[in-house]
Amino acid sequence: MPAIDIIIPSLLAHCSSGKLHLSVDGNTLKQTLDNLLQAYPLLKVHLYEESGKQRPYVLIYLNEDNIQWFDDMDVYLKPGDRIQIVQSVAGG
């Protein structure tokens, strides 16, 4: 099971013991995100609404791709893949 690098925004560092770079195991995107939230449960409320939908201005990228572009989350991951959580720039 590859260890995937995950980068989180500094505003959410309190959810990950102050760390901005995490390493989380997972074979697929879904499994990796599930493992991320299991290891750092405080992140969940900031990334997802009560309904389970990703918050509208939270962007999660797998390498260069916005994960919302994928048909599903069962995307297989390989060593060296990187997940980055960023806030969408909205407004001015």
Partner: peptide, 8 residues
């Protein structure tokens, strides 16, 4: 709260 990351 935060416009992007919600309340807590």
């Amino acid at each position: 709260g935060h416009f992007i990351y919600g309340p807590c």
